[in-house]
Design a protein around this nucleic acid. Sequence first.
DNA 1: CCCCATGTTCAATGTTTATTGAACTATCAA
DNA 2: TTGATAGTTCAATAAACATTGAACATGGGG
Lengths: 123, 123
Amino acid sequence: MSRTPPHPTREQIELPMVLDCLSDPIRLAIVYQLAQQQGVSSELCCGDFNALGGKSNLAYHFAKLRESGLMQTRVAGTNRFMRLRREDLDARFPGLLDAVVKSAAKDADRLQLLSECEAPAAG
Amino acid sequence: MSRTPPHPTREQIELPMVLDCLSDPIRLAIVYQLAQQQGVSSELCCGDFNALGGKSNLAYHFAKLRESGLMQTRVAGTNRFMRLRREDLDARFPGLLDAVVKSAAKDADRLQLLSECEAPAAG
DNA sequence: CCCCATGTTCAATGTTTATTGAACTATCAA
DNA sequence: TTGATAGTTCAATAAACATTGAACATGGGG
């Protein structure tokens, strides 16, 4: 369990699998949340997504996102840190991830993308 | 049966439904083929997709594409003419359709996008 | 060491999905 | 009318999917 799980190489990333991943509301929310993180730490751990569902259900979606090549998982102690594979995605499917994330942002309330503002922030 | 089937309005088009539609290889091929047609006649009829599957299976996929808002069906005699709802899609999700079609084009052989050049393949 | 927190894996569930063929509807042409 | 053409709808089936909870593995801190 401490080993890094398998990831597809850049060239192995398949368009239908990526689109299928992004078509699920929970997975789209995960990707969206990771995209918001770009430039900040660029990484989030599983627990940061707990608002989106139960642990085992999330693990299921994480696996799909990993297998599709959308995100990468790094194991550190008892935590798994995930980041978007933006470089690989952009190289493979230019403009796609950007268009999806922007489209999701436009519909942020229609979709239930609770990006970083799930707790009522003071100040 | 002669009535035009129902289509969602532009605002009713939902991102997850669109992505889900595009994640199916047959539907992606249909959309790709329609996209190639942009600027030509911009319309194709059901029979033009016969290489992609059986009639009833295609009708099923056509319905999904229509319900998702990706394409529009126009009834003319015994024919149904379809076209991409590119304006609506571009207004709703800027850059998305373009990125998907270009990504599909890049993988045209990996995916089985027999755009306009398909010979009757021997089993 | 033992316990707890973090996450994964497994088995079971009910739902959705893609696919097939047969039956059906509608239009056109002779 | 009859028949051919173009597509849809229906019923059935098998596969895939999302979701749940329980069991499991791993690492950190007392």
